[in-house]
């Protein structure tokens, strides 16, 4: 399995400028990878192109061996007609019950499963939304700001848990937090504006795992590389 995009050209209907002009990148191994770049550069558009939610582009997206590609974003909501716990029960396959319980705990949601979505804080809403995606069958999950409004400590433990639980899946984490991206991601695809060529640069992150400590110098160097690339 590998994910690659080759010579993607894309322009929104009615827009005067192209979002992508020959964008190419590849992520060769599963793991926790990132799509990084300034706001408005086209990260969300690229994510939607990868999962097939946007068509009308030219170029090729290769997701060899992957049949279930999911895209989650931080503005999603659960219907408010029942508690988030009941929603989660309904969409969790029997085979993933254990996963669910583990995720509820790590995501710090144990005490809130009886509440409805609108009664949760923004961070809790994003956590519950991400959890339901993690409980599906997928080979690739794109997390578009999926941990926005979640405190740093919880975010860190969530990312480490995801990495430990799903080592053979592809993740593309879209975030503007370059410390987090540098620290936890393995491959970092930096997306740049259409006037810059190449439109993406691939960097290697620290890919921190549970019980490992951060090499400060390496972290700083990675962060500098990301900033320069963007």
């Amino acid at each position: 399995m590998a994910l690659s995009c080759n010579h993607i050209f894309f322009q929104y209907p009615g827009a005067s400028t192209e979002v992508f002009q020959g964008l190419s990148f590849s992520v060769k191994q599963p793991g926790f990878n990132a799509l990084f770049g300034p706001s408005g550069v086209g990260k969300t558009s690229l994510a939607k192109i990868i999962v097939g939610e946007i068509t009308g582009y030219s170029g090729k997206v290769n997701a060899d061996g992957m049949t279930r590609l999911l895209y989650s974003y931080n503005l999603e909501r659960l219907p408010d007609w029942s508690s988030v716990g009941r929603h989660l029960d309904k969409i969790t396959p029997d085979s993933k019950e254990e996963h669910k319980e583990a995720l509820v705990e790590v995501f710090g949601m144990t005490d809130y499963m009886g509440l409805r979505f609108s009664q949760l804080s923004l961070g809790q809403q994003n956590r519950i939304n991400l959890m339901r995606y993690l409980l599906q069958d997928f080979e690739l999950l794109i997390m578009d700001e999926s941990l926005a409004n979640v405190d740093e400590m919880t975010r860190e433990s969530i990312i480490l848990k995801i990495k430990a639980m799903f080592p053979d899946r592809y993740f593309l984490y879209i975030s503007h937090n370059f410390v987090e991206v540098s620290k936890f991601c393995r491959e970092i695809v930096v997306v740049r504006g259409p006037l810059k060529q190449p439109q993406t640069l691939s960097l290697t992150g620290i890919d921190l795992k549970s019980h490992q400590s951060v090499d400060r110098d390496r972290l700083e160097q990675t962060m500098l590389e990301i900033m320069n690339a963007a």
Binding site: L70, E76, R77, L78, P79, W81, I91, N129, Y133, Q136
Partner: peptide, 24 residues
């Protein structure tokens, strides 16, 4: 969209659910 997206991409969307979401 922000509610229906999940059900669509995971293949869970049925017309009854769609109507229920929009009516609710």
């Amino acid at each position: 969209k922000e509610i229906e997206h999940f059900y669509r991409v995971t293949g869970r969307m049925r017309w009854q659910l769609e109507v229920k979401i929009r009516a609710f």
